[in-house]
Measured scan of single mutants.
Amino acid sequence: DEETLERIAKELKEKGWTLIVNGKLITDAREALKWLLEEEERR
């Protein structure tokens, strides 16, 4: 759910983690959240 996604995005940002999505590096939590939401919609 959205709360979980926001928590994940926040944790990613705090830890300075990066996500690699389709070979693209995502360092911004907002971008990561946007991607996660798009993935949820596809299901």
Results as ranks from 00 to 15, higher is better:
E14R: 08
D1N: 10
E41S: 10
K15H: 09
L12G: 01
T27K: 06
R43S: 09
E2T: 10
T4Q: 07
D28S: 08
E40S: 11
I8A: 04
R42E: 03
K24M: 09
K13T: 11
T27Y: 10
E2M: 14
R30F: 13
A29K: 02
I20G: 02
L33H: 00
T27L: 10
E41R: 12
E39L: 13
E40F: 15
G23V: 10
R30Q: 08
L33V: 05
D28R: 14
A9T: 08
W17T: 00
E3T: 11
E40M: 14
E39S: 05
E6T: 09
K15Q: 07
E39V: 10
A9I: 15
E6V: 11
E14F: 07
W17D: 00
I26E: 01
E40I: 14
R7Q: 06
V21T: 02
I8P: 01
T27M: 07
K13A: 13
E3C: 15
W17E: 00
G16A: 11
E41D: 08
L19I: 09
W35L: 04
E3R: 11
R42P: 03
K13L: 14
L36Y: 06
E6L: 13
R7M: 08
R30G: 04
L36N: 00
E2W: 15
T18W: 12
A29R: 02
W35R: 11
E3Q: 09
I8D: 00
A32K: 02
L33K: 00
K34H: 03
K34S: 05
K15G: 13
E38Y: 10
R42G: 05
D1E: 10
G16T: 09
L5Y: 08
D1T: 12
T4W: 15
E14W: 12
E40C: 15
K34A: 08
T18V: 14
N22S: 07
I26V: 07
E2C: 15
E31K: 10
E14C: 15
K10A: 09
T27R: 11
D28M: 14
A9S: 06
I26S: 03
E14H: 05
K15W: 14
T18H: 05
V21G: 03
N22I: 15
K24Y: 13
E31C: 08
L33R: 01
E41A: 13
G16D: 02
E31M: 08
W35I: 04
G16P: 03
E38F: 11
L19T: 02
L36V: 03
E6W: 13
L5V: 05
E40A: 12
R7S: 04
K10R: 11
E31Y: 06
L5H: 02
D1L: 15
E41L: 13
L25R: 03
T27V: 08
W17I: 03
T4P: 04
L5T: 02
E2H: 12
E3N: 11
L37P: 00
W17G: 04
E39G: 04
E40G: 08
R43N: 08
E11A: 14
E14N: 10
L12Y: 05
L36K: 00
L12S: 01
R42N: 05
K24A: 09
E38T: 04
K15F: 12
T27A: 09
K13N: 11
L33P: 00
E40N: 11
R42F: 06
L36C: 15
V21H: 03
G23H: 02
T4V: 10
R43I: 10
K15L: 09
E3I: 14
L37A: 04
K10Q: 10
E2Y: 13
I26F: 13
L33S: 00
K10D: 03
K34D: 01
E40D: 07
A29D: 02
E38V: 06
G16E: 03
A32I: 14
I26G: 01
L37H: 03
L33T: 01
D1A: 11
G23F: 14
W35T: 00
E39T: 08
A32W: 14
T4A: 10
W35E: 00
W17F: 09
R42S: 05
T27I: 12
K13Y: 10
K34V: 06
K10T: 07
V21A: 05
A9D: 03
L19G: 02
E11C: 15
A32R: 01
W17P: 00
E6S: 08
E31T: 05
R7Y: 04
E2D: 09
L19N: 00
I20N: 03
L36P: 00
L19D: 00
T18R: 09
N22L: 14
E38D: 06
A32M: 12
E38C: 15
I26D: 01
E41P: 05
